[in-house]
């Protein structure tokens, strides 16, 4: 599902090169649950952004479902992202001026799905994330846990095979974090490939099969 080989990412600031990721290589099989662990600044978010096609690597190879995403032109990469990848952000990144249901519709607009079908899919995703009762509410009126469930609904609405979560429990209390992990477990059981970047110790206690990739200073340890 995911193949990363000799991946490097650096930024050049004031003619000085800052290495963020160094020689990263790993494989993730379809249906795997992977925890990308590491302290702040270890490169987790950058790696996740590259896997989502939101950022390009400086060198190396990234294949998702056999597609070299770093080399795809914008229009194909955007379509790939809408169809194959669901992203759950640390700050949820819901659009405040849209209702929760309309937020969930956004990826389906990019996939050119008709309105009736898109609304039905959004409703299913909201039910699945257990937030259908708040579908007409605006993000500013939702609690952190509700926003997170809204973000899950949006990530799964197009039924992507790969889910990427960036510090998903950073803004949740313990009870909501456990509910979120439970939701991820269900999605994993449904066959989704899930990669979670986190440094939250709550994930140490998960009791279903998973793989751990530890990052330190941009390298796998």
């Amino acid at each position: 599902m995911v193949v990363v080989e000799q991946l490097n990412r650096w930024y050049t600031i004031d003619k000085k090169r800052h290495q963020i990721l160094k020689d990263i290589s790993f494989h993730v099989k379809r249906g795997d649950f992977v925890l990308l662990r590491g302290v702040s600044g270890s490169g987790k978010t950058t790696l996740l952004s590259i896997l989502a096609g939101l950022e390009k690597p400086s060198s190396g190879k990234v294949l998702i479902d056999g597609e070299p995403i770093a080399k795809l032109p914008d229009i194909h990469l955007s379509h790939f992202r809408a169809k194959k990848v669901g992203i759950i952000f640390q700050h949820f990144n819901l659009i405040d001026s849209l209702s929760l249901q309309d937020n969930v519709l956004v990826p389906l607009v990019a996939l050119k799905i008709g309105l009736q079908e898109a609304k039905a899919m959004a409703e299913r995703a909201l039910k699945s994330a257990n937030i259908a009762h708040k579908s007409e509410a605006y993000p500013t009126k939702l609690s952190g846990g509700e926003k997170q469930r809204g973000a899950i609904a949006r990530a799964i609405v197009a039924d992507p095979p790969l889910l990427l979560c960036d510090e998903p429990t950073a803004n949740l209390d313990r009870a909501n974090s456990l509910l979120f992990i439970d939701a991820l477990h269900k999605l994993h059981q449904e066959g989704k490939t899930i990669i979670v970047a986190t440094h939250d110790p709550i994930f140490d206690a998960i009791d279903f099969p998973h793989t751990i990739i530890d990052l330190k200073d941009g390298q796998i340890v």
Binding site: L54, D74, S78, R81, I95, P107, V109, L111, R154
Partner: peptide, 16 residues
């Protein structure tokens, strides 16, 4: 900018 970035991350192309 944030809204444009969210739409891009959810699969909207530059053309869209």
């Amino acid at each position: 900018k944030r809204e444009v970035a969210i739409l891009r991350s959810l699969g909207w192309s530059i053309k869209d």
